[in-house]
Design a protein around this nucleic acid. Sequence first.
DNA 1: GAGTGGTCTAGACCACCTC
DNA 2: AGGTGGTCTAGACCACTCT
Lengths: 241, 241
Amino acid sequence: MVPRPCVCVGPFKMKLGWEAIRAEVLRRIRTRIWAPGGLIPSEEALALEFGCARATVNRALQELANSGVLERKRKAGTRVAALPVRKATLEIPVIRQEIEARGQAHSFRLLSRLLKVPPLAILARLGVQDTVAMLHLQTLHLAGGIPQVFEDRWLNPSVLPDPAPDFSILSVNEWLVASVAFSIGDIAFSAEPASAQEADALAVGPGTALFITERTTWATDAPITWVRLSHAPGYRLQTLL
Amino acid sequence: MVPRPCVCVGPFKMKLGWEAIRAEVLRRIRTRIWAPGGLIPSEEALALEFGCARATVNRALQELANSGVLERKRKAGTRVAALPVRKATLEIPVIRQEIEARGQAHSFRLLSRLLKVPPLAILARLGVQDTVAMLHLQTLHLAGGIPQVFEDRWLNPSVLPDPAPDFSILSVNEWLVASVAFSIGDIAFSAEPASAQEADALAVGPGTALFITERTTWATDAPITWVRLSHAPGYRLQTLL
DNA sequence: GAGTGGTCTAGACCACCTC
DNA sequence: AGGTGGTCTAGACCACTCT
């Protein structure tokens, strides 16, 4: 009795791109030809088998390592991940885009605009030691006239140009993406009961389950903004794929 | 008075890897040397400027395109994204891992295990037309004895091996990742009030705001499972970076 | 048609890690 | 010490798309 056929199918004839190689590797993993936790052949061996350059195999395997399917270590080789930590990619659009993508009209109301010292928790999030005053902006975003998102934001006034933009005309959000472009930050999601203020703004009962997005943004040197978005009931955040 | 120095610093001396190039490109975007919506030089031009091969520039720019900072089109060239759709990557670990990573003991109780026909909404999610019976499993996950996650799952029985695993000993979740490895699916997040059953299982008041994770998984041909996780209050989902 | 990004190659060197 | 992945190069061809 011979072992299962087809464990190694030998050199391929047709030309293979890195996507084809990725697909073939994935197939071998899914069909358990290569078992979880197991070593797979070296890049060189695979390049030989597939009849392509090592760089092409490398590209395919790196892609799979990025998505958590493979674990690679120098010298140790490449293994099929034992506990596949799913990595999901989310797209976080600007609110206006999100609403208009649903075919609704976006509008917003600036509810509050005050310069004051934020709570310590927020200063801490922004990595600030001193108690500096920041611009506190509260905005309600509407879709077709219906309240959709309540935005609570603290903005570092030192990033503002001298005649500060009129945020009752231009949404803060959009001014930021256009002006303080592409900074780093982090994002967190949670569920929380609506506060009295949120309930009032979104026209829901207090305590209603709200989907919360919280974002902190820094420039290379200084903190820029902290924002908390409270989404009206029915909001769903979905992954691509 | 001369214009700002350093708009174009000319050929670099030291050796640059693709990460250094990515960083430099990002810097030029953040400092608005290259404005949002604007074209940046071609790969060839950049390779010349940085004194490296075009493939190295390509690697750097592709990375930035993947993270939504650049938009690339053949012939049209590479532009700085006008509306930066933030792409965030989430790691979705297995529940046990997540709890143990916080230094708590993970345990679980299988609350229910029935073979019956799921609601139409769930059949639809799984892309099934016929009304087939599926395995309905309800599990409560605990961290250090405290209820943490309520799991409501429908499982396609045809993916089970003949003596079905005893899910009161091995968590369904873990059996799945080990056995039906690496399938595709999609994930959605939302906030919802606790149902009577959820409230009871998680020991919270009914209507409490719960963070909900909903996942659908297919194999290449057949549906595998639909699962809804209700997280106890306090749960936060955070991006890397 | 021409310019751009997307990909592949064959070879090379290096950093890292296990043995 | 040696094998492995990570990266870079110089060159090439192709596919797409804007004009």
